[in-house]
Amino acid sequence: MTTQILIAGFGGQGILFSGKLLAYKALSEGKELSWLPSYGPEMRGGTASCSVTISDEPVGSPIIDNPDVLIVMNLPSLDRYESTVKPGGAIFVDSSLVGRKVQRKDVEAFYIPATKIAQDIGASNLANIVLIGKVLKDSELSRGYLEEALKKVVSAKHPEMYDLNLKAIDAGYNYIEE
């Protein structure tokens, strides 16, 4: 099985980091994977996206034209990528930041106010991780090996961030849509 995940938003929202978390999770699971960032020259602002392919087979092209899973953290990204998702695929939307609903009927749409939840749990810069929690719950990805992956991506200089990230994952994983 091959799962292609596209994560998109503004630079600075942790788009690449959340992709890295999924990549390390796949590595821990012993799967094949590729992680490909796309961004402009700026450190913050601008648009950023990250393509993660996870597969039981060697990965062909790391470039994703039609994702199985789309995760969006701003409106321009939903506008740009909604039409590219495979029929039967899933779109995860940070509804704190994106005002509109998914228009397509042939994909599953999940809405989670990730930015607000992150603020509520005292992790205002971890909306990306809250979203990933929701993705692990409702997509074909599982929660297995999450802790192993988190240990690898959280900076050794900030070990306290591990617990906070885990809290953000749980907040997203346990969120029930209204």
């Binding site: 990549a23 590595l27 994977l33 590729s34 992680w35 490909l36 960032p37 990965v59 790391p62 470039i63």
Partner: peptide, 9 residues
């Protein structure tokens, strides 16, 4: 640039 920027095992 793709080869430089991408991560793989």
């Amino acid at each position: 640039g793709t080869m430089g920027q991408m991560m793989e095992p």
